[in-house]
Amino acid sequence: MNDAISFTVGFSHGVEWGWPIAVYLLLAGISGGAMIISIVTRHFKQEVENSALTKAGSLVGFATIVFGMVFLVGDLEKPLYFWKILINYNFKSVMSIGVIAISFYIPLTAVMFFYAFEKEILKYFGFLSFLVGILRPLRPYVEFITLWFAIAICAYTGFLISVLIRFPLLNTALLPALFVVSGLSAGNAASGIIATKFFKEDLHSFDMKILHRVEWPIMIAEVLLIVMLAVSLLIGNEYQKEVFQAFTSSQFSLLFWGGVVGLSFIVPIVFNLLLGRFTSKSAGIYYMTAISVICGVLSLRMFLLYAGQTFGA
């Protein structure tokens, strides 16, 4: 095709999905990741009492997805019409499928929250005691279903933007996988912070050791997926090659190297692995790296959204 016939102007304003969507993608990832981790550890420990990690995971899982809705609805230009999405479904649309998943997932996380804080809730709201009889026998089933929905929520946020065929950085099968993995990483960090800070979990308890153990495989998977994504663009077609510069020489490369690589990989590696012997006793260092990982995951979503929508066919 000759250049003179293909137009180069568009009617949108560049980055149409901005930071509120990135924050929502982060919160949905944290929610799904925290839920997955707390359900899986509870299952493998054959836990009977609600541990601090279970409480933290349920609280984080419930609170972040509800808070995420504020950003999701707030980003609409007609937020008061959001109910239209609940009555008109389009099953070809990832967003519609996501809305269906969320409308199951939020009540499920609420029930999980109820399980984890049964005693505390009943202390103040005694009239809810009838719920215990109904819900308690269902707990293993609710946990099982919630686990799958948590994975689905993380994955759907990836599919949501990977269907945008104009943007090679986003239109890739790696994205849902990357979102599941980075969601786990942020969810892990968030439930660790909440468990130690608010539920008095000891920094070196068995549960916290589990969190630290799974940190590294998750991080390795995350690094691998990001490298694969970058390489697939570098060896791709004309459009994909152009997108590769997002990593190296664009206004977003600082966000990538400083935010994604620095905050979510370098900081934990330096402070937890290399200097582990000196820093492992310090709660401050632990909170610092955990917050840094969450910021890194936010940077990853910001980078993908902004660079993704900037470089396109």
């Binding site: 009617f11 949108s12 230009e77 239209k84 999405i85 008109n88």
Partner: peptide
Amino acid sequence: DDCISCKYCVVACPYDVRFINEETHA
């Protein structure tokens, strides 16, 4: 009337020829 202005169609269009009308917000 049914558009909630989520801009999904705007970003999904491979030709970048959709926009949100400033007056109708659709």
